[in-house]
Design a protein around this nucleic acid. Sequence first.
DNA 1: CATATACTTGTTTTT
DNA 2: CAAGTATATG
Length: 687
Amino acid sequence: MQDKDDLLAKLNPVQREAARHGENPLLLIAGAGTGKTTTLVHRVAYQIASGISPSRIMLLTFTRRAAQQMVERLRRISGDDLDISGIWAGTFHATSVRLLRIFGEAIGVPARFTMHDRSDSEDLLDSLLNKLKKDVDGELTLPRKGTALSMHSFQVNSQLPLEEVLDQFYPDYSECLHELQGLFDRYQKQKRQVGIVDYDDLLLLMRDLLRHPEVGVRIGQRFERVLVDEYQDTNSLQAQVLMALCPTGKGLTAVGDDAQSIYSFRAATVRNILDFPEQFLNTTLLKLEQNYRGTQPLLDVSNALMSTAKEGFTKSLWSDRTGGFRAQLISCVDESQQAEMIVERILRHRKEGIPLASQAVLFRAAYHSLALETELNREKLPYVKFGGLKFAESAHVKDLLAFLRLAENTKDTVAAIRILLLIPGIGPKKAGQCVDMLQVTSTGLSIWNQVKPPSSASLLWKSFVHLMTELESDRPKSLKQQLEAVMNFYGPLLEDRYDNAPLRKRDLEQLISMADRFESRQQMLVDLTIDPPSSTEDVEADRKRKEPPLVLSTIHSAKGLEWPVVFVMSAAAGMLPMPKAAETLEGYEEERRLLYVAMTRAADWLYVSYPQPRYDFRGGWSNATVGGMTEYITPPMAKMFQRQHADCLSEIERIDSSSASLPQAGPSKRASPMRKSSSKKSKTNSE
DNA sequence: CATATACTTGTTTTT
DNA sequence: CAAGTATATG
């Protein structure tokens, strides 16, 4: 077997030091594109080579995508010598599920728990909220379900007292503190009683499990090494999870970049990263500043952006890839012209040899790409979109899964009401009655045989109850068969419910064909909730594409990825600083970091574009305050950008033809193995 | 009691 | 523009 230090041959000195660091707590501050993931992956490989069993290493990442990518890279660098298969790599949430399946009973989580996604949580909370509304009888103005859930979720994740959360973020509702507190207590209690778990509960339960006097200690001892990626985006609750897992910090590694913290709405706090050295004694702090991704001119612009930030340490990224393309700032007449401009440039890059899949268009909110998508469809360019509404969140998919969810957990009233309402002739009232029947009985769903539906629905009702009791029974049926049985029943209902039924039906066929991937019904339901197919590609993957598609992504979903060509679109007040988000100073600063994250995704070409302000919905210039110039871009920065006005088409042509050749990509080697790893799916690399 | 229609409201980001 | 409320009809 090779010497374990050979593994680290390609790392720079700081990276190597991080990889070889012993078991004392390690905090790695790593700027965008500095080889953060590379270092982390090498550290894991090095530890395994040093004799630590992979099954005793936990690698916590921010998204499932990041976890998969890391495992893939780990596999690549460890070759055949090291067996890495036992490693626990995943998000906090996914890891929690994994632990709960094994140890959940210890803290009262039933093996057949079902999960609620955000809209299910809202529904459950809404039922309690409506009762409360009757009680207060108009004396108080209570929040809507979505707002209420956000409050509660923030409270849980931040671990602050509810009073503080209300005062700080929802002052309008400070008066209802008492009522809301009661509401949330009842909400938590009810979920526990019926074996329902939501996103926040996964963290809460993971913490509680790890604090369990016996089981918790056992788990803590089992994991000798714990590594956390994107630490700047963890919240207090996640910090508590880590504290419970590694009380002394022994074996703990955290990696992050305070300049890229963009999840404050999930109660993420840079305090976690700043306080790490105090929280865990003997912490070693290492910093990575050499960027292996971008060219120096591109980094100059990003650095300039961050130098205007109001707070935070300034790191200056540098690269030895001097020269190359200078970023362009492009002013467009309106959104549709912006779309045309982007498509035109994408095509030009493709002609010059950059495949579509190596180009990405990034934006603040999912709907910002609508105009562009129309244009892409017109040009028949294939694309995948990350972020925005997920496949598993669409109504028809949720309907289908609700049948299985109810069968899995007959106390999951949200699932029950959802499917009951699908049946013609059954409304909220009747559905409520049916659900109440379930609460008192122990015979399960067969009690519904006693329900007498309106005569028009009686036949349908019979087949419905038959279906459900079949699903509920332990009679061995494959998942696929179960789904097909549901589809038999649901298919016709779907048809007269939605006008685009054929399309939706195809989605469901897709879902059914995915069934074999899952080991059990419970697993399928939970996995689809914590790891919903995040792009259109995941769903359509087997429809063979002629060409790997262009990437469209929200900035949040683009975190940690890179592309040779990056477009940041709609970077103008009203869209990139989102008015709603930029109300507070902290919010405003986060919007800036968002732009920073977006710009630092680019390796070779970067375009930032914005439409001119226009008089828009409900009185107001969409980005008037800045006279058409995006707020964050200061005059010196504008000079660094090669500024263009796309409304003068001749100007575009002129500049484009002069800069049409490929940029000199700096020194011959890119100093890291990140590039060029053209295996099937690695159109993008991580930092 | 279920459902259809007509009108108001508030617009992000993700596990 | 979707998701809420309010009112009318079956």
